[in-house]
Design a protein around this nucleic acid. Sequence first.
DNA 1: CCTTACCATGAAGGACGTACATAATTACGA
DNA 2: TCGTAATTATGTACGTCCTTCATGGTAAGG
Lengths: 192, 192
Amino acid sequence: MKDVHNYDRDPDGSLYDPRVRAAMAGFAGGDPADPLTLLTCEAGAAVRTAYHSVERMRAHGSQGRGVSAGALDLLLRLNGSDQGISIGDLARAAGVSSRNVTGLMDTLENDGLALRVPDPGDRRSVLARITPAGRAWIEAFREPSRLAMRAMFQGFSAEELVVFRDLCLRLAANQHQLADRLSHLSQNGDQP
Amino acid sequence: MKDVHNYDRDPDGSLYDPRVRAAMAGFAGGDPADPLTLLTCEAGAAVRTAYHSVERMRAHGSQGRGVSAGALDLLLRLNGSDQGISIGDLARAAGVSSRNVTGLMDTLENDGLALRVPDPGDRRSVLARITPAGRAWIEAFREPSRLAMRAMFQGFSAEELVVFRDLCLRLAANQHQLADRLSHLSQNGDQP
DNA sequence: CCTTACCATGAAGGACGTACATAATTACGA
DNA sequence: TCGTAATTATGTACGTCCTTCATGGTAAGG
């Protein structure tokens, strides 16, 4: 499991993964008129790597306390709301299926960190709400998590963090727009 | 599953997710002497979002052709090598357990896209090698994937792609250094 | 030679995520 | 008003990724 992390640096000083580049060169490779394809492939792989790193750190901090990654996501969102959030809204906010949120809420409810209350305005709907125990859990989680996050982003300036967030969300926005277009294409015919 | 994607923009024009910020404000929140913590939390959440976007696009392109995300990762790496790569090396390169790579190789071998050959230099080791069918699969996958990647990173300049890759890998490098330090700490006593 | 370390894999399990079907409820149109 | 369609949460059933621990085969160094 020990990963010999030999990233290299391009002439401009930016990091890259030589193994990824070797793999992608044979894939996106030969066309010199299209250097952007190689770059996008490398960037896509880098996102994957970064995500795994974040998840691993998160696991160290939360999994040891009995809450998994997806459940933590929900709990943090619930912590930002007092009256509760419906299952569907949570699913849309997190970009996952509502069935998934139902399952995560089951585990949170079993642990006593959240509970379901009926939505007074819609009897089909269920509001998920954080419990005092949930808030206490988050409170205990706060400081170690803060330190871990700071360590993860060690060496990042505030400007770099902002740029990073912006690039990540632009990626997500592009994907979403694309997915919408694809689903509309498959629903309708062809030309507008 | 339709996600109403209402990201907002900070005064400087950079994207942020208001729901994440609301959740994180209550968590990393109040301390005005430490604005970086909120930023790091937002950045961490953004990585997660971006990763899911990439995975979803990848699923559209490959899962429909019978190869899952992890297996595709392996196949691309194998495509960059002719004589083959050992299971352990693949695991270290991808940052996952070797057991995991064994399982993914099983599926690739069942599909005929890769095969195992004995390592002439070490009879314990097994070299994973791509087959002609594997290369043909990749060839067929190349053009749709290229288009999808270009669409995903639409609006990204070459410089932004480089910066993005650099930031992602710096994150991964930090995490790795941190994990090493933690494991050493738990192995040894305390002070150096 | 023999102990130690390494390699791939079997076994078992956890977590995330999906699709489809269903019952309850709401919304809307004739 | 009544009936049809849409929405909400959830049951059922899967698939994939990833992990840890245990095991048999092999290499390396004393």
